[in-house]
Write a protein that binds this DNA or RNA. Structure first.
Lengths: 205, 205, 205, 205
DNA sequence: TATGAATGAGTTTTCATTCAT
DNA sequence: CATGAATGAAAACTCATTCAT
């Protein structure tokens, strides 16, 4: 279910080459920011001339679009599975966090781009799906946190919205320093993170 | 009293107007990103023509520079005071976090810019002080966390670097949603945040 | 008999200050070229702000105008005296050359500006007097050379126009390296130059 | 065969087109002065838009650079051949002058630009080679003149430096009025010029 | 007389995009 | 599929000039 199948996005081209090019683009977008990235830089890294990219994509923006929507599609596949599993609130949080770090592992560049650019992109009609996604996201997390408080699994004195923001941001911001293949697996990072958020860093007195 | 005959823009020139203009610029940089912000947009908001800004500043980049360095100067005044106070590790963390949220309250735009742009700016010689600051920052936090583990105030099983990153990011990322004058004071946000990080969100079993 | 007394060139200002400022301007125009010279550079050297110059002059161009026409006025006073003296061709040439080096001594900057800019300035109506002067100049020199050939004072095989160009250019181009107060007086330079042009640098065989 | 990934403009790109464009640029620079020449004027004459020039060159300054250095390279090829030929002083002077007028014939625009702009350009590091060239030039001429005086080919009473300056300037300044394809060939002009400088314009008494 | 602040027109440069080959 | 050459719109910046104080 691709997000936009409108115009004549040349599907003639081999999807493998497209993927390669998108990965390159995502890497550069993440490193330098979307606006600061020139089409020429992407082409350089891909070993071609700027104009040649337009055989594969019809604009710089559509590359960005494809990168972000591919990422969100995969993300929601994972999230939806978790949410449909009927777990308790604590287990749901654990599963969502773990799933998030897995996505960061697989789509580091896309996540970094999402972090930096989504806010101002969301203003454009073409990227409204970012807002949609973010609302779905918020609903899932807020709901789970609320359920946890009701179930007396989470502390009753929490400011739910504040907690949500803190948790959301910390998870995703990890994309800015995470390096795949580093010393920590995504699962390991998730475990450490959850231990901090759920139980705190202070020793129990 | 030599006449300032260097290329530098007259710092003599009405500091009040400069401040006003820098605040406007910071607001726009924060909202749209530095690269996506045109000099014209800043001038529009300031009610002048684009070229007129160059009477006060000698480039768009120097505005950014001044915004960031003014922020960091103030930040370190606060941090240095905390670090010099000889508090225990937990109290130090509490004071640093509180101080951070206060800075966000006072320099929201600058913090947001810092978050989004510092990584790639640091590559330029002109912005090396960002790297310096970030290293000092890291030393302060890591040191405090380590001391806390030694003193058995923090849990012995923490991955210090990972914890540092989580804590650091969550604090600063708050600048992206924080609105001064909103329902939570910086101190209130700090308290909530510290309660989460120190004691966890799960109920004690 | 000032060249342009049209607009309201503020003659209110003390003529001494005007002269000072014009000398400064001429120096900078000569060193950097008229176009490359900003009004700010002139003001800097004069110890004032750019806008303040407009109290004294009504435009950058009018400063140039005044510099050049003052120079030409003086030049022609000298030249006219020589031409009216009824000298023989060789003596006339000697007197013109000597007079020229004296002008270079007194108006070095103006001469340098004239050399570099007169050609393209002459296209503007305001600077047509440059063309007039140059034609008068040409007539005086060509006439003298022709008279010299007729009188068998100069070699009969000379290409008069070519000789004129060479002589004219060498004289004036000296403004680009001449430094008043250096080791050679204008008269000394004139003597050396005349000796070369009249008798050649080769030893007589 | 590494792909040229530096910032340098592809020197690979059709050298013929580059040459054409540089010739156009040189013509305009020579006619109006470098500073007074806008990139748009050059583009207009070349029948393209201003921005399009940047496909071939990376700045207006680099066009100037290329024009001047190409000229100096060719000039020194000729000069070095003359200086290596082991001629006597008079013959060396004759050969250098003739070579110079040939260069003016082939690179009129470049020579004119050199004359007008080299002095202030030499201040910029990028154009230091102008100073180098000018020093080599001075050495070659001064040396030959001195040798001529020692050999009693030139008059013993010459002020060598003064003579050098006169000779140098007259030769090059010819670029400002010389029109290729006019009635005088470069060789003819050189002959007339040499006859004046070597033997003088006065009849032998 | 001079300053401080601004204007507005123009300049160089950048860059996404197009398109014939 | 890719290149080479260009377009055109917009960007940052410059600078002569104005004017109230």
């Amino acid at each position: 279910m691709p997000t936009n199948s409108k115009k004549k996005t040349q599907v003639t081209a081999s999807p493998a080459r497209r993927r390669e090019l998108l990965d390159t683009a995502a890497e550069v977008f993440a490193a330098q920011g979307y606006n600061a990235t020139t089409v020429r830089k992407i082409a350089d890294r891909a070993g071609m001339l700027a104009g040649s990219l337009y055989y594969h994509f019809d604009s710089k923006e559509s590359m960005l679009d494809e990168i972000l929507s591919a990422f969100l599609d995969e993300l929601w596949q994972g999230y939806d599975a978790v949410l449909a599993a009927g777990l308790g609130p604590r287990e749901t949080i654990e599963a969502l966090v773990t799933e998030s770090f897995r996505e960061i592992d697989r789509h580091r560049a896309a996540v970094a781009i999402y972090q930096k650019e989504s806010r101002h992109l969301a203003a454009q009609p073409r990227f409204h799906y970012l807002t949609d996604s973010q609302q779905k996201f918020e609903k899932a997390w807020l709901g789970t946190l609320e359920r946890g408080v009701s179930d007396q699994v989470f502390r009753p004195d929490l400011d739910i919205r504040l907690t949500y923001r803190f948790v959301r941001d910390t998870v995703w911001v990890a994309a800015s320093w995470y390096r795949p293949g580093g010393q920590h697996s995504p699962e390991e990072i998730a475990r450490q993170y959850l231990s901090m958020v759920l139980d705190g860093i202070a020793v129990r007195t």
